[in-house]
């Protein structure tokens, strides 16, 4: 039997695919946006400082971009990808307008967000996003890959909230892999939700409602990274096997998590303290 038009697979009709890109360069002593391509739900806009910033507070010579959500989601089945290129010597501050709510789709299926980042020689990348909220019955895979040049600097924050107020989270996995000069520096994949056995136990997250971390890479720490510092029962700063530290925390909710992470950043002192 000849089929002129194969039936569209169930669910695909409602899927949203987005491919956005952002690039900066150093030009005349200041950083400028070289490329800015929004796509559907991933809306990129040049922006003003949103509030206190680590490292770049009040500096006018940096490129600032905000990521806003053009639609609800991602929803189950959606596939988002964002490519970021911080050109040699330039400074990019990437912020977000609001928290991202990850929801189940009408037809089920997993949603995916992939962020691919290159931080070139002498560049600085400040990624200061808002939390990701994993709603009940969501199924989301977040995948962030960063390659940073050995003489580049970076600070980034990631916060995940386990469900909206009073609800159990869906399945959520977030991978962050950082390579520096091509060598692995940090690679962690955090999972929670009904499919992640033991995640709500005392080895992983306990009864936390929020989990997050701040990763800071600075080449001046090659021989002398800030020492390990467990600064709260639920939070610690840990030097990585390289010129970098991770500040990790769990908390009951997003506000308490933000307080712990901010304290960890303040403890780093200048120039990182916001």
């Amino acid at each position: 039997m000849y089929v002129s038009s194969p039936p569209e697979p169930v669910g695909l009709a409602n899927r949203m695919t987005a491919r956005a890109a952002l690039a900066t360069e150093l030009s005349g002593g200041a950083s400028r946006i070289r490329a800015l391509r929004s796509d559907g739900p991933l809306v990129l806009r040049p922006s003003h400082p949103k509030g206190a910033e680590p490292l770049t507070h009040r500096r006018p010579d940096v490129a600032r971009v905000s990521l806003a959500a053009g639609t609800a989601g991602p929803l189950g089945g959606d596939d988002y990808a964002l490519s970021i290129h911080v050109g040699g010597g330039s400074t990019l501050v990437l912020q977000e307008v609001s928290a991202m709510l990850v929801l189940p789709g009408a037809t089920g299926g997993r949603s995916r967000t992939a962020v691919d980042i290159r931080v070139e020689s002498g560049a600085t990348f400040v990624w200061w996003p808002e939390p990701i909220i994993a709603a009940h019955r969501c199924d989301h895979e977040h995948d962030i890959r960063i390659e940073i040049a050995p003489d580049a600097r970076m600070i980034l924050r990631e916060e995940a909230i386990l469900g909206r107020h009073g609800e159990m989270p869906g399945d959520f996995a977030s991978r962050l892999r950082i390579t520096r000069g091509g060598l692995p520096l940090y690679d962690q994949r955090l999972r929670f939700g009904p499919g992640a056995e033991g995640a709500d136990g005392p080895a992983i997250l306990g009864d936390a409602g929020a989990v997050g971390s701040v990763i800071v890479v600075d080449p001046v720490w090659v021989d002398d990274a800030p020492p390990a510092l467990p600064f709260h029962r639920d939070a610690a700063r840990t030097p990585l096997a390289g010129p970098a530290v991770a500040i990790a925390a769990i908390a009951a909710d997003s506000l308490a998590l933000r307080r712990l992470l901010s304290r960890g950043v303040q403890d780093l002192g200048a120039p990182w303290a916001a």
């Binding site: 892999r177 080895a203 306990g206 989990v211």
Partner: peptide, 17 residues
């Protein structure tokens, strides 16, 4: 590079304490 990398934040924090 694709070997599993599951995170356990509480284990890391508790170890430092």
């Amino acid at each position: 590079c694709d070997l599993p990398a599951p995170a356990s934040p509480l284990a890391d924090i508790a170890a430092e304490h």
